[in-house]
Amino acid sequence: MFGSFDFDVIERSWRYLFFDGMAFTLRLTLFAMVGGIVFGTLLAMMRLSSVKPLAWIAGVYVNTLRSIPLVLVIFWFYFLVPYIGAWVLRSDTPIRVGAFASSLLTFVMFEACYYCEIMRAGIQSIPRGQVWAGYALGLNYWQSMGHVVLPQAFRNMLPVLLTQTIVLFQDVSLVYVLSITDFVGAASKVAERDGRLVEMYSFVAVVYFVACLLLSQSVRRLQARIAIVR
């Protein structure tokens, strides 16, 4: 039944798929993860702040972005960022923003909402006594966050943070709507050029499956290694 399929197309194109497509996907995933976790942690601290306006702003931001489909956010940002940039820099013409910069900004802003909720749960999982102990020693808010609360929250939540990163890794494929050559984008270009849609998309699915399987297994191993002895 596979008689009419031509899997040679993979052999002909794998360099392009991985060195161009997958390289972009991995780079975007990595940067968006780091940026998302940093921004998400700040959002979580704002949401838990006793300063009510800060908590309110962070809450509105997170809830708004989480209720809009990611594809829409990607589109919006791609078309709006040049104009916002122009407005900020008081320029008459829209600013040229590269595809990578635009999609990175989108993913950081969007994924930060999810990382925020994870870090919020992580911060709340730290017993109040730990914060008291930090304060009682004379640490200020930032010191007790930085040395006592966040390191523990981060460790407790690392498996969930990485699971969210696996989701991010898959979500990155949506930049294909901007005709960016990520892994899926590269595959679809080859697929359409050679008329081998089924073969290419099957191959893409297998690669994603294997990558995510390996990642989630390493998360499980990591989880066992970094657990805090209590």
């Binding site: 006594g129 730990q130 004379g138 640490l139 200020n140 040395h147 523990q152 002895v229 209590r230």
Partner: peptide, 29 residues
């Protein structure tokens, strides 16, 4: 914070920082 640094406090549940060694607990503040 400055005032608290001059008052020692010991808690019911110890509240040592579990992600640090004993030495790090003693030297942090």
């Amino acid at each position: 914070p400055k005032l608290r640094a001059r008052i020692g406090m010991v808690f019911q549940n110890f509240e040592l920082f579990p992600h640090m060694t004993v030495t790090q607990n003693l030297t942090l503040a």
